[in-house]
């Protein structure tokens, strides 16, 4: 269930919800980390659900010099009121056999909170690509039935995005629109299927392999931002104190402090002497 960090009631009418699926290389989760960190989004609550494995830690977005403690839990909700965006960050995998109950809860919650659009960020095994996917952009999108034709056209022409290729199913027919082929994509596919009737939903994904997926995450975050426009990267002219206009740099991507030591602790260098 959703537990608000403050006591006031929350209403997310007209909001876009970004949800990362735990997927290959954790690309969705990392991309979301990047967005939260860059926008300094506010944590507004927790999702306390028996389907997610427990985890606690110190604030992953804290300043490196910070010596305080602000604990994070396995699944939290972040908000940016300016852009009417909320993000659910899931930090640990699902308990086996519990995915269905989480999806059911999430669907109900989105309807209750009147979320207008769901954006699922995920990734798919690079080794499952077909020939035409090997070269060029590794980014793909899938839209649900609630998307208008012109919106899809806009994604294709203005943003130069490519729709995920349809695959032949086992009996030789092309797959239905409701079930895209996303191996390694976690709950993205089934969540998309479950929610597409009620909510405007789309999947943004990247083909990748396990490894250092920081650059994949940045790429996915950039794609999401080029469409949603939640982070303003453009430099701005601001009136300075002396009356002259000064050019202020726009926001730039901020890597969360918690991404450090990705390959473990430092080791004793004398080992290699």
């Amino acid at each position: 269930m959703f537990i608000s960090a403050e006591s006031k009631e929350k209403d997310f009418e007209g909001y876009t919800l970004i949800f990362p699926a735990v997927s290959v290389g954790n690309v969705g989760q990392l991309a979301v980390d990047m967005i939260i960190s860059t926008l300094w989004m506010e944590r507004i609550g927790y999702i306390y659900h028996d389907s997610i494995l427990p985890l606690v830690g110190n604030d992953p977005f804290a300043h490196p010099e910070s010596i305080s403690c602000k604990i994070v839990t396995n699944c939290e909700v972040y908000e940016n009121t300016e852009n009417k965006t909320i993000i659910i960050q899931q930090r640990s995998p699902f308990v086996q056999g519990k995915r269905a109950s989480f999806k059911q809860w999430l669907r109900k919650w989105m309807v209750e909170m009147k979320i207008s659009q769901l954006v699922i960020l995920t990734s798919s095994h690079a080794h499952e690509r077909i020939d035409c996917q090997l070269q060029g952009s590794q980014f793909r999108f899938v839209t649900g039935p609630k998307f208008e034709k012109h919106e899809i056209e806009d994604m294709k022409s203005r943003l130069e995005w490519q729709e995920l290729e349809k695959r032949l199913s086992e009996n030789g027919e092309t797959e239905e629109i409701s079930s895209p082929y996303i191996p390694g994509g976690g709950i993205a596919k089934s969540l998309f299927k479950d929610c597409s009737e009620e909510v405007k939903v789309c999947i943004l994904l990247l083909f990748c392999s396990e490894g250092d997926n920081a650059s994949d995450a940045l790429q996915l975050a950039k794609h999401a931002n080029s469409w949603l426009n939640i982070i303003d990267m453009e430099p701005k002219l601001v009136m300075g104190v002396d009356g002259k206009s000064v050019k202020m740099p726009g926001l730039s991507w901020k890597v969360p402090y918690s991404w450090k030591l990705m390959f473990g602790s430092q080791v004793d260098r004398t080992l290699f002497h």
């Binding site: 927790y46 306390y48 494995l53 427990p54 985890l55 606690v56 830690g57 110190n58 992953p60 804290a62 010596i67 305080s68 403690c69 604990i71 839990t73 396995n74 640990s92 402090y257 918690s258 991404w259 450090k260 030591l261 990705m262």
Partner: peptide
């Protein structure tokens, strides 16, 4: 405090999450 990027998992994490 537990410093970045360390985390605590399992039952102790669940107990602290409940309290939080």
């Amino acid at each position: 405090y537990v410093d970045q990027p360390n985390i605590v998992t399992g039952l102790p994490a669940q107990c602290l999450s409940y309290c939080q």
